[in-house]
Design a protein around this nucleic acid. Sequence first.
DNA 1: AAGTGGTCTAGACCACGCC
DNA 2: GCGTGGTCTAGACCACTTA
Lengths: 253, 253
Amino acid sequence: MADDTLHGQMASDLRVLITSGELKPGSPLPSEAQLGEQYGVSRPTVRRALQTLEQEGLVSAHAGRGRVVRDRRAMVYRPQQEYEPRRSSTMDRFTTVLSEQGRQPSQSIEVAVENAGRMIAQRLGVPEGTPVVARKRVRFLDGEPFNINDTYHTLELAGGTAVMNPEDIPEGSNVVIERLIGREVRAVDEIYIRMPTPDETRRLKLSTGTPVGVHYCTGYTQDERVVRVEYFVIPGDRHVIVYDRVHPVETID
Amino acid sequence: MADDTLHGQMASDLRVLITSGELKPGSPLPSEAQLGEQYGVSRPTVRRALQTLEQEGLVSAHAGRGRVVRDRRAMVYRPQQEYEPRRSSTMDRFTTVLSEQGRQPSQSIEVAVENAGRMIAQRLGVPEGTPVVARKRVRFLDGEPFNINDTYHTLELAGGTAVMNPEDIPEGSNVVIERLIGREVRAVDEIYIRMPTPDETRRLKLSTGTPVGVHYCTGYTQDERVVRVEYFVIPGDRHVIVYDRVHPVETID
DNA sequence: AAGTGGTCTAGACCACGCC
DNA sequence: GCGTGGTCTAGACCACTTA
């Protein structure tokens, strides 16, 4: 428990101020110079302490402006709803839900045919490097990147259909795909927790110390054919992942 | 994309070596002195580059031994199975499953009556600070801490029962609780992704740069009474979270 | 212009692991 | 004993933000 390093003590002191609520989200921290004088240590030592807090996601730094306590509230992310039918013909489900909450949702859509990486190929059941259809979206909330949502289909299934259209699909891409291959009856979710790659950091404008959840969702028809593979990147500082489960009825032996 | 800092370039170079597989898990990295000479930079700059890779979870450092590429394989974690009945009367489900895989599972159990924190109190439906029964476990695999699993019940429900016994409960604590309050018919999972607290880092022996999933599971009876609140801490470098879902049968309007 | 964080250098001393 | 990473100092210069 005891941390006898100087930077560890400083980090510990500041952590208490933040987690106790004495320093609220948005509050500025003392500058590096001030903290150095206060503790009688050199600037690199102060920076080492602040770096710890940044890694823990408690603090974010802005050159020229200083450091502030981060807001750690999270939005609800429900994987189960990601395949629900859309409720409006002009807005998709993501847009509908958030508009109802008075937020400003938007998204960028980009469609490409690209060679499947290992994770996608395995799940689509094709060899690595096979060309596949990728429908890539970045969702924004109030102008800030919120999450990444890329949908993959085999070229055989989706090539030349409305899914290739890099715009909103009024009836929903789910419906288009269902007509082609049949209804999706079950799905498998896999969620990895890790630090973002530099590319993800850039696309989602993540601050240092923000972990991400990577969510792969693979959908199957009744006869076990793969309908779609979905790839989400969910910043840890903006989401809670929520599942509602009803236990199967079974006897305990 | 371009990173024109010295430490950014070094990190980028080393990252390619690791992600391409040229440096495999377990391989040693060059020492700080060697890298400094190779790039013609001072040691703090080398350390800055290596720190980035540690934060990304690609590398771990050991004083006196050097740095090695980390193993990033993950075990499957299925929240849905965490409430399944046990298959053996001498081993719980966690122990049973892993024994079958030839791993060496073990766990430490500790039972306490403690005052509920905000998250636990909200979910149990009691005021913050109310004394509750906490059954706290740390699960180990091959001697290394693997995850944290704390189960909470109201004192009213579990006080004085077998659940308070800080040892393995042969019939399973689920069964004991079911007799007291009735069958659990549904559960809500909440998964938070964040960096670990210093306490979690210590209990799970996490290396720097390892994010965690925090999984709260709240179980309900048919008449919506809370059966249990479960609190898991899942190191991101050791687990994949997996859900199997069957879509509800419904018509698309 | 003044203050902030971002980068980088050139040293120093220590604790740890291995031979 | 030697090499490793861990800690810390005392400077320097830069880019950025705010006033």
